[in-house]
Write a protein that binds this DNA or RNA. Structure first.
Length: 469
RNA sequence: GCCCCCAUCGUCCAGCGGCCUAGGACGCCUGCCUUUCACGCAGGUAACACGGGUUCGAAUCCCGUUGGGGGUGCCA
């Protein structure tokens, strides 16, 4: 009757914000679950009371929601399941699979150095028959011989010599469980079938396997270790040195569709080579065993390209609505001078020019600010080095714009009559007007911009710039 | 040090023994379009780390070397 249901989990630790690596792990778990018609559940791994910051849990949930990775059921918090871990530890102790250890971290380290620098616990308390006590931890007894191995969906057969595994801690001296233990217990308790996680955790897999075996966990857990996402130096992305907070990408105006799509191309790629495509298609094509093995560089330039594509694919109303946040928060103009209807006129022109939503204000600031912000390089190039032409063009525009038809076509005819008369390229002729009115050499199409600004203000800015020459 | 993993253009992916003169995408360069920028379009640049095998045949399989990464916590 019950076909083997697939159930995967994303298990963030609330010691920081959701970062790019975590988002990718969550995404691949989600893709696998949705592809297999299984479940994707969340587990908050907050066994380390000192490092966990409860307030971050909600931040992580919101980032997942932003990405569109919906989860099944109610998230489980390890901090509320202490009894399960305690019971497991009791079992291990009772069966002789674990023992109490009174060695402090300093002692363990000192003995390791005395041995010749090989790190790790030496089994000092293995046969001492110790019981609970202040500063005592519980260690798992790893067999001295044999191997612990597993077949990874991505990496194939991976095996470890037990002799290279130390007797690791399963319960801290403060009584809280270590994550391997909580992990083994929860995966079994929650009926997890597949563990898809970063390769940085591949070395703890034998510990979890040993624990599961000792605890007689039912079924077999299938692992898939994802290649790490790396920085330009090909090192694992780090919160300290790299720009990895998903929240920061939200603030810069990346679209979640673009982020998720891009993340899906890191370590995996559709066989037909079409990278930018709807999530539903990715779900349909996804297969964990097709995931690559080597680290993938997080290329922001390529992410931006994806984002630009997604922005341009938006309808104009969608673009306007998605941009609003950047139009009101920290915008480079007084809030009261902003007018959404005016923005809507320019929106289509801005939409095809930005790669990030956060860039939107810089394309329309000259409309809402009292004065254009003059870009020095632009001014130098057009108004100083090209002063002669600038003077002539501005004088021409000042006259022509005073009574021409105030439409893009009317302005075009009025200004470019100068280009025709003097056989100068339109590009050169429009530059002084653009810099005078918008402050820069680049921006949305000029005449549409002037229409929005209005005749009076355009003439005022033209006159003001002319006076500076 | 020890353990584990990895190795195709600068980057991401395709390639799963012959279809490879190695394909697509980003980036970069050139041109076209054009009132700037951007978009779009047309081109170009550029890779199977090295050495041995296996095979009629290897980017694809095996071994080694080199290089890179990860782990080595009473963090996860």
């Amino acid at each position: 009757m019950s076909s083997p249901q697939v159930r995967v989990r994303f298990a963030p630790s609330p010691t920081g914000y959701l970062h790019i690596g975590g988002a990718r792990t969550a995404l691949f778990n989600w893709l696998f679950a949705r592809r297999m018609g299984g479940e994707f559940v969340l587990r908050i791994e907050d066994t380390d009371g000192e490092r966990s910051r409860p307030e971050l849990i909600d931040v992580i949930f919101r980032a997942l929601e932003w990405l569109g990775l919906d989860w099944d059921g109610t998230p489980v918090h390890q901090s509320e399941r202490g009894h399960l871990y305690s019971a497991a530890i009791e079992t291990l102790l009772a069966n002789g699979d674990a023992y109490w250890c009174a060695c402090s971290p300093e002692e363990v380290k000192a003995r390791a150095e005395a041995r010749g620098g090989t790190p790790g616990y030496d089994g000092h308390c293995r046969e001492r028959g110790l019981g609970p006590g202040v500063g005592h931890v519980v260690r798992f007894r790893v067999a001295d011989t044999g191997t612990t191995a597993f077949d990874d969906l991505i990496r194939g057969h991976v095996s470890f010599e037990n002799a290279n595994l130390e007797d690791f801690v399963v319960q801290r001296s403060n009584g809280s469980p270590m994550f391997h233990l909580a992990n083994a217990v929860d995966d079994a308790d929650q009926g997890i079938t597949h563990v898809i996680r970063g390769e940085d955790l591949i070395n703890v897999t034998p510990k979890v396997l040993l624990l599961r075996h000792a605890l007689q966990a039912p079924g077999e857990l299938i692992f898939a270790h994802l290649p790490l996402i790396v920085n330009e130096k090909r090192q694992k992305l780090s919160k300290r040195r790299d720009d990895v907070s998903v929240g920061d990408y939200i603030d810069r105006g990346y679209l979640p569709e673009a982020m998720v799509n891009y993340l899906a191309t890191l370590g995996w790629g559709p066989s037909d080579g079409v990278e930018i495509r709807p999530l539903a298609e990715i779900v349909a094509m996804f297969d964990v065993s097709d995931v690559g093995k080597s680290g993938a560089f997080f290329d922001v330039k390529k992410l931006q390209h994806f984002n630009g594509e997604y922005i341009r694919a938006l309808t104009v109303p969608q673009f306007v609505s998605r941009s609003t946040r950047w139009l009101f928060e920290d915008a480079p103009w007084p809030a009261e001078s902003f007018d959404i209807a005016t923005f809507e006129v320019l929106a289509p022109l801005v939409q095809e020019r930005v790669k990030l939503l956060a860039e939107v204000p810089s394309f329309v600031d000259f409309v809402f600010a009292a004065e254009p912000t003059i870009d020095e390089d632009s001014w130098q190039k057009v108004m100083v080095k090209g002063a002669d032409l600038a003077v002539a063009v501005l004088d021409h525009a000042l006259v022509q714009f005073a009574d021409c038809e105030w439409t893009a076509a009317g302005l075009d005819a009025a200004l470019f009559s100068y280009a025709e008369q003097h056989e100068i390229s339109k590009g050169k002729v429009q530059a002084p007007v653009r810099v005078s009115v918008t402050g820069r050499t680049v921006g949305p199409p000029l005449f549409e911009s002037l229409v929005v600004i209005g005749r009076d203000e355009t003439l005022r800015r033209l006159g003001s710039a002319r006076a500076r020459l």
